[in-house]
Amino acid sequence: MRQLRYLPAVGAAYGVEVLTFAGLRTTDTDERRTRLQRPDFHVLALITEGSGAHEADFRDYPLHEGSVVWIRPGVVHRWSDVDRLDGFLILFRPGFLPRPGLETVDVTPPVCWRVPSEVLPLAVSAAEHLDREHRAAARAPHLASAALLSHLLAALVLRVLPATSAPRPHHASGNRALEVFHAYRAAVEDHFTQWHHVADYATALGYDTRTLTRTTRAATGTGAKAFLDQRILLEAKRLLAHTDLPVGACARRLGFHDAGNFTTFFRRQTGHAPSTWTAGLRSRRTDRPHPTPKPGTS
């Protein structure tokens, strides 16, 4: 698995880079796009024609005209098959959007969805506008404006977001509860490899555990402890599936001082021991045919 850092091309040092899948295929002659990768930046794709496939965190997603893919930093993914599609591929740094909340607008952000047919032309127009400004900035640096590019990216994001994810007004109490959950989610992302108890987060954030449980359940449908455990489990699966680390090393990487405790945790969450789960994943990957879309479908 490749760890990818944000390294913009020459003339694209504004926190965002606009590509196309056709351009990606031209430059990526050894097809590194089909190998597992983990970026430290956002990848937003809008499919404008054709069909293909994408994989992210152990799930396969079919791609069609109007599909949107949003890979957030840390997600392990690969472009399984993008040889018969085209569209926009936008890379941007965390914090580049003018409103940071747009990066976490959904409490359980989706990886892939499809915009309605009546929205697609508007989304394409937004992507084309961003692309034109990006190319103009690269050709003529005196025309460059990071603020303008940031707002054009925000316009595209707002246009393609699923209706259930679009920002909408809340009552004061609802806003407050959501703020508490966002603070908890951010703390979990920063500390889940060290802190495995909700009480640790409650102490750090200045709330009691019942408040964190209530607000997390309201936002996600699950309690604070289950939310934390799922984040630890996802990272455990990533390490087991995409590295050569033995179980004991994975346990230490995730803050378990004893491999037996990690195995107990993993078995409780999945029903399988880590080694059994890994073997099953490899077996399924070996048996699974490579996804190949039908030519001419959309």
Rank of each mutant, 00 (worst) to 15 (best):
V82H: 04
A187Y: 09
G23Q: 01
H151V: 09
E118N: 10
L281D: 10
S298H: 13
R32D: 03
L152V: 00
T286G: 12
D287G: 08
D208S: 03
W113Y: 09
F192L: 14
C112Y: 02
T263K: 00
S173I: 14
D40L: 04
V82D: 08
A241C: 05
K294V: 04
E118W: 10
L152R: 04
A144Y: 09
R284C: 05
E128I: 00
T216G: 11
R25L: 09
H197F: 12
F265G: 04
R72Q: 05
V105H: 15
V198H: 14
A241I: 02
E65L: 08
P274V: 13
P141W: 03
V76L: 07
F265L: 00
R231V: 00
A186Y: 04
L4K: 14
T213S: 14
R35Q: 13
G23N: 08
A123R: 07
L149T: 01
T222P: 13
A273W: 14
V111L: 03
P167W: 01
L149A: 07
S173T: 15
A166Y: 03
V10K: 14
G50C: 09
L234G: 05
T211M: 12
L233R: 12
R284A: 08
Q230Y: 02
V157K: 07
F192N: 11
S145G: 08
T286K: 11
C112R: 08
T222D: 10
F21C: 04
V160S: 04
Y6I: 05
P246W: 07
R132F: 11
A136V: 07
T216L: 00
D30C: 01
R78H: 08
E235R: 12
L63D: 02
L281A: 02
D28A: 09
P293T: 06
A187F: 02
S150P: 15
A183Y: 11
A155R: 04
A187M: 09
